[in-house]
Design a protein around this nucleic acid. Structure first.
Lengths: 345, 345
DNA sequence: ATGAAAGCGCTAACAC
DNA sequence: GTGTTAGCGCTTTCAT
């Protein structure tokens, strides 16, 4: 018995077909833009009208079972509460929603086991592709997916082992802009509080710092690596930096969280920013213009990164054969209050 | 031909059954905890082993088609980049993931049309339930879903028209704590910058302010309503407040974003916080301890709200007949630097 | 305790 | 141009 007859529940393709007086297959063809040309113009209209009248919604579950497509994608990030990710995720969501894709979002907490479980769960749900914002420089799980030809897009990350499509910000330029700004202010002894070197952004930014400093004829060795992209590690990092390489007047942090950690350490030691030490962040996460002092930082086009990633994914899904492309987006320097000319002792 | 034989692709139940030497139906029963008792102990073990060996993952799409369950839920929020929501969403995600549910997250931007579209899309995907963090006090779309007996949980919101299960924070106590703190400091002329009155939290908090002030024998009429939960509206609101009711020495804001808007206005007018005006926020969103001055605010157990909501949803899905329950979680006051004793002129 | 068979809603060969 | 048929992977009667 068709569900329309029972009066209950959601109309199915059968109901539409019945109402239009055609076979389900015809109804299916008429409803699908790809195959609509196979059916008589008038019949198609009749089917469309019937669907409209019934408020028919195709069931993607059933379709997916048949077509091996779920019209959904997995978005794998380290942690949604890291303020860098919400805008990126929204960009992905907005870019994909228009095309009928749903996004399954998961946070890995940088825990490889959890990540493996989540990837398995997403694969089980037949996602049509994966976004990874959590890629370590080496990442067996991703390599595996790539080998299986699952559509993949790396977001704000790159892989060393694999030439996968990625959307990143121009980290090198960003570091150089920060460096130029700080040297322009008169600083010459500049420290770098690097992000974890098992992340591609961490490595890229540190590398840019080293070459940039060398090119400027400055000493590029005042460097400490944080173990995590966290405030706590930023605090620890600056402490270590001041212990091992005292005397610098500015510190560039691998990201804003690390910069905030510097603030914590400085507050605790009574060091004033920017009078005694200039600090520069990276990412320009929400509220960085409101912290004390307002943080000078390199701003990423976060939402745009998400949108671009969505575009790349669509390309990958629709044209799997086309050569891989990657996108690098420009960054901008936001000069605020955490940087000033060095104070002559 | 079974996929295991072809050597490619993902193993199906057929492959597991074949390997264990049983019929698919038996394999299905053995794999499902609910029906395992129907099958011989030894057979069950054999099937489980086969599944293990093959790395079998049940296909929820196929299962869903049969059972009319998608093992996924929709999470509808106004905007993921509003920092209140990421922790809540993570709580929901973590609470549900353990039970095998996936979350489909969407942002409505408070746009009713967009929201309607998104709800339709989610229904089309057969989600087993909806979380709404975007409920207006009146909300036809939600009423409709409730009438259709779709499992629903309201998060940080309540509905006037409908007694739906909800998880909220104890807004009234929060406002009272803020009030007590500020009066304890010596303030008597206290303004309230209310959130939008088309939201339940906006209404609840304003109501608590009015009764609280009255109970304290203070004038409760220095109130302005913001049109949105936004920084811009906070700025506008404080401007309006100072124009229409000058002379107050403390302002309680409906949430942190509004409080930050107050900061903006004060910076622009050269009014010092807390010396000239004390400000209290609400929610204790990320970085409120880092803004200038560090914001005194009422903290919500954000992650816990999400976890509780997930629990409620699970109950609803599993026992649809059980009476509706709602949860109200306690809040805490974070005293920081934006409040001080009023400055005698 | 297990197998056989039907069917969830849809799409895609294949016929006519 | 349209109907027929089969089947995606799984669960669930119904037999045995």
């Amino acid at each position: 018995l068709s569900s329309a007859v029972t009066g209950m529940s959601i109309p199915t393709l059968r109901d539409v077909a019945a109402r239009a007086g055609v076979h389900v297959a015809t109804a299916s063809r008429a409803l699908n833009a790809q195959t609509r040309h196979l059916v008589n113009q008038k019949t198609a209209v009749r089917v469309l009208d019937a669907a409209q009248a019934l408020g028919y919604q195709p069931n993607p579950i059933a379709r997916g079972l048949r077509t091996n497509q779920s019209m959904s994608v997995g978005v794998v990030i380290p942690d949604l509460t890291n303020p860098l990710f919400p805008p990126i995720v929204r960009g992905i969501e907005d870019g994909l929603m228009a095309e009928g894709y749903a996004t399954l979002l998961v946070s890995t907490d940088n825990n490889p086991e959890r990540e493996a479980t989540l990837i398995r769960a997403l694969r089980g749900r037949q996602v049509d592709g994966f976004f990874f914002a959590s890629a370590r420089v080496e990442h067996p799980a991703i390599d595996q997916l790539a080998r299986e030809a699952v559509p993949l897009v790396l977001v704000n990350r790159r892989l060393e082992s694999n030439n996968l499509p990625s959307v990143t910000a121009d980290d090198a330029s960003g570091v150089l802009m920060a460096l130029k700004h700080v040297t322009g202010l008169g600083h010459t002894r500049i420290a770098y509080l690097a992000g974890p070197q098992w992340t591609s952004t961490g490595k890229a930014r540190l590398h840019a710092f080293r070459t940039g400093m060398t090119d400027l004829g400055l000493d590029p060795t005042t460097v400490v690596e944080a173990g995590q992209w966290s405030e706590a590690e930023g605090e620890r990092g600056l402490a270590q930096l001041m212990g091992s390489h005292p005397g610098f007047t500015a510190v560039l942090a691998g990201n804003d969280l690390l910069a905030l950690g510097c603030y914590d350490f400085m507050a605790q030691r009574g060091i004033r920013c920017p009078e005694q030490l200039s600090v520069v962040g990276f990412n320009d996460v929400q509220f960085m213009d409101k912290v004390r002092p307002a943080l000078t930082t390199v701003a990423l086009p976060q939402y745009e990164i998400g949108v671009s990633a969505a575009r790349l994914m669509l390309e990958r899904i629709r044209h799997p054969k086309v050569a891989l492309t990657s996108v690098e987006l420009p960054v901008t320097l936001k000069v605020r209050e955490s940087t000033a000319a060095p104070n002559p002792l």
